[in-house]
Design a protein around this nucleic acid. Structure first.
Lengths: 357, 357
DNA sequence: CTTGTAGAATAAACCGATTTATCTTTGGAT
DNA sequence: ATCCAAAGATAAATCGGTTTATTCTACAAG
């Protein structure tokens, strides 16, 4: 299997010698170039497997301007969302014959810029960047400086310089309004989340608000947005509910992030309110525990796979010169996973009583 | 900042020309070799910054046997545990002047072996492997075949061929017994988890069992271990509790994995039992939601940082030839985070009543 | 005024592939 | 049989660094 003495690896020249051809021919065979006689290709393959030859992916790309490597930079690797994203991207890149190099910017814009430069050092063929904050961040700027081909993912809605891919936060939030207001007829709803000036959060607020008013101009929407520490937020939720006695209390809550959902959930339980009888709960961003906990939590699931697929497809199309037109903005649709915490929707259980919107 | 025409990068030869020295000298300066006259080093640095020169990390390692790269192979990137581990490892590797290449074996032993081979293709200086299942898996075998220097992490307790690092599952579980039996005096405890033949799970069972019997020979320990699908496990939990009426019901549960903790928690809630009044709950493996949910969940936190630090330190010591002795097995201590679900421990709130073990 | 030697500098070989420019075959048409 | 074009094969240049072997200094000792 391995070459004879010690751990010296077989090179393309060893293969060439064993097959009785030149190194150039071996290179052609290995890259699938067709201008090789069948018998020669045959002997090359035989020599490759006899010597256990494996190409050095680095030396391979040394000569050309780019190597068969795709870079990926994400804000962190500790959240399941990015973990899943990276896993899918890696899988897609490999299927297309590329290696993938992953790096975490650890939520730092300075590091993001550094990593962009580093990806350029690696001479990656293309790069997928999930910006720490905005599409105008230093990472994207560096990519532009270097003239790298790249695709921006998530946390971004539009950029006239790169292809971008993100979840359709606006429409997904509107579909939550459809469920809570259109189908279930809630008249008073609380929106809970962070204020962080992220395009994604703003789109969620806007998407819900617009659809809600369109469905029922009289609906009451309270907003409880804060970036305060955990305990402060817990207190804020309790005091909000204390202030709302009896009928003035909201009958449904839409939490705008996973963190927010968990917080709201635990406070509701602590206050002794029943879900969904006393108050319905829908969260943005799905998580494993939401399916297992009881009652299970209705949530908007982000289309990680679709995002990964679209991003890699778009990137490879650029890399391989199949697409040279203007930048494109892709929006991938989310899925609303209706579970127990939203109560029985009429669509789900049509035989229930008929009080709709 | 960047080189003049278009996007042609400056090479070491450009720097040499600009500084009026040879490429070899530039190389020495850049690698910190001391046999260079101060004034020459000075001019090299000036030229580097003027041309915005950045070394190509691939071409750099081409000649030597190894490149300044550390490989890391983990079973998945979607769980926060491995995500955090990889993040820390990356950070440590970079601090030591290495690049890091991460890959997920996606829980497949075949892929694990393939990745090991791939790491060898990259000529990494060293590799950190978290085996999919056991330390005898194909990945470790490949590493051995290739004569690579490597450290095995987690899911492994001992290997006479590689340095290994893992959490001290045995002792951590014993400390759970200390809490539940020694400090709180529980007489009847349920252990819940998967049966998977993983050394880690077996150590958790053994660690708890041994300490439990040492503290109170009369303690009753039930085990509910299963790899059945979700719904089957839920039913098993309910029927277990149905069979245990009144005083024969366990007063505490130790769940052996995060997944198990969530499952137990939701079933307990569904059955209407109060935590910790009716039954106390301690889980192995901490998660964000356990701190936020109400009541908060007592859990054993694995020492991710310590594991990462130890693993990288051990690997670099091997890579740089500072350590050449026999393989070492490191066990890193876990932390028991006592929260509401375990009830008031006497150590935490000493002014409470005094009924101890 | 040599000679010796340690310290610096460098030209050239090298790493392992790809690509180019050139040379050799092959096969078909005349 | 002759010639030519197309297909295949290959020697050599190349990528951007590192390493080696050699040359060049400078300075001290003889």
């Amino acid at each position: 299997m391995q070459s004879d003495d010690k751990h010296r690896r077989a090179t393309i020249h060893d293969v060439a010698r064993a097959a009785g051809v030149s190194a150039a021919t071996v290179s052609k065979v290995l890259r699938g170039v067709k201008t090789v006689r069948a018998d020669n290709a045959e002997r090359v393959h035989k020599a490759v497997s006899e010597l256990g030859y494996r190409m050095d992916p680095l030396a391979s790309g040394l000569r050309g301007e780019h190597r068969r490597i795709i870079g990926a930079v994400v804000p962190d690797l500790e959240s399941p969302f990015f973990g899943k994203l990276v896993t899918e991207l890696e899988s897609l890149a490999e299927a297309a014959g590329y290696h993938m190099i992953v790096a975490s910017s650890r939520e730092s814009e300075a590091r993001e810029a550094d990593l962009a430069a580093r990806m350029n050092d690696w001479r990656v063929a293309g790069c997928i960047l999930v910006p720490v904050r905005s599409e105008r961040g230093p990472g994207a700027e560096k990519l532009l400086d270097f003239g790298m081909t790249a695709v921006l993912v998530d946390r971004v809605s539009a950029d006239e310089r790169f292809d971008t891919v993100s979840a359709d936060n606006h429409e997904a939030s509107a579909s939550v309004a459809d469920l809570l207001i259109g189908r279930q007829g809630h008249k008073h709803i609380l929106l809970h989340g962070a204020t962080r000036i992220s395009k994604a959060i703003r789109n969620r607020l806007a998407g819900f608000g617009e659809r809600a008013r369109a469905l029922d101009p009289g609906v009451v929407i309270d907003e409880l947005l804060s970036d305060e520490p955990l305990e402060t937020q817990r207190a804020a939720i309790r005091s909000y509910f204390d202030g709302k006695v009896n009928g003035h209390r909201p009958t449904a809550i839409f939490s705008l992030s996973q963190h927010s959902t968990l917080l709201v959930l635990s406070e509701i339980r602590r206050m002794g309110l029943r879900i969904p009888e006393d108050v319905a709960l829908v969260g943005f961003d799905d998580a494993d525990w939401m399916q297992t906990t009881w009652p299970s939590i209705t949530a908007v699931a982000q289309p990680v796979s679709a995002i990964a697929k679209r991003a890699m497809t778009a990137l490879l199309a650029r890399v391989e010169g199949e697409h040279t037109g203007f930048p494109v903005q892709y929006l991938e649709p989310c899925t609303l996973l209706v579970r127990q915490s939203a109560g029985q929707s009429e669509t789900e259980r049509p035989r229930r009583s008929g009080r709709s919107g």
